[in-house]
């Protein structure tokens, strides 16, 4: 069982279609040929590297190494979230790391232990791909959440301060921005859960079916993973905003001005 292997030559045959694309873009002066080649090249390179690395990781299957690999993935996720949210990495890395680590670990281990019921909770075959799916989805959610929260506050700072004067409590005064950013962050996932299966078959299911699982098993995994993604996103976005507050505000509860990356104005 398992999908047929692809030879390097047959994989390479896919690049035939790149020729007309490059030609058309050039003819239409789209000016994106460089980016097309760059992006495709990076994708191939990164995935080949991960493939080699995963093969090594799966063969060794050391819980410690797998755990460290996940921590590294979280670190990269934090870095890229803060870069996209234009928040200073120096200030927010630690709180964000914790905000992801806590729900991520709980949900992932629950999935492995209670749902799939594997004996070794840190088994690479489950831990790493599932962990990657959870993280990949959290990335987008947290970016939306943090960006909404801090840019909204910056834009409406007077309104926040006025609420602060009326309620004399930071959390109470921040509630409208909390609500707004959490809802904005979670909505895309809710929408995709509501339409899943109608429009597209999710990648995980496709992979499992190709890998030889019968559809009903693939579906069960898909349902489980969607639920886990939603839970992880939900908790990590709330925690990432909560944990960021200490750095985001000064001791008088006023928004710090130097939390944004330099090019933000």
């Amino acid at each position: 069982m398992g999908a047929l292997d692809l030879s390097i030559f047959s994989l390479g045959s896919l690049f035939i279609f790149l020729l007309p694309i490059l030609y058309i873009s050039r003819y239409l002066k789209l000016g994106i040929n460089k980016s097309i080649i760059f992006s495709m090249g990076r994708m191939c390179l990164q995935l080949s590297f991960v493939g080699l690395y995963l093969e090594f990781l799966f063969k060794l299957d050391s819980p410690w190494l797998n755990g460290i690999y996940l921590l590294m993935m979280i670190s990269i996720a934090c870095y890229s979230i803060l870069k996209s949210s234009r928040l200073k990495i120096r200030l927010f890395f630690k709180p964000l790391f914790l905000a992801i680590l806590i729900p991520f670990t709980i949900i992932l281990l629950f999935f492995n232990g209670m749902v799939v019921r594997i004996d070794n909770l840190f088994e690479a075959k489950y831990l790493i791909p599932i962990g990657g799916m959870l993280l990949g989805n959290c990335l987008r959610t947290i970016i939306i959440g943090l960006t909404n929260f801090y840019s909204g506050l910056k834009k409406n700072e007077k309104e926040y301060l006025y609420s602060l004067s009326l309620f004399n409590n930071r959390i109470q005064a921040l509630k409208p921005w909390f609500r707004e950013s959490i809802v904005a962050a979670i909505t895309p996932t809710l929408a995709s859960m509501a339409t899943i299966g109608l429009v597209s078959l999710p990648g995980m299911m496709t992979g499992q079916i190709l890998g030889g699982s019968i559809p009903i098993v693939a579906i069960k995994y898909q349902i489980a993973i969607m639920i886990c993604i939603f839970y992880t996103e939900y908790f990590s976005v709330i925690l990432s905003i909560l944990f960021s507050l200490k750095k985001g505000f000064n001791s008088f509860d006023v928004l710090n001005t130097d939390i944004f990356q330099k090019d933000y104005s």
């Binding site: 007077k158 309104e159 006025y162 609420s163 004067s165 409208p176």
Partner: peptide, 13 residues
């Protein structure tokens, strides 16, 4: 806690 502030634009949410 002791202060009531009425800002110029009354920045109510």
């Amino acid at each position: 806690k002791q202060i009531f502030y009425l800002s110029q634009d009354i920045d109510l949410k």
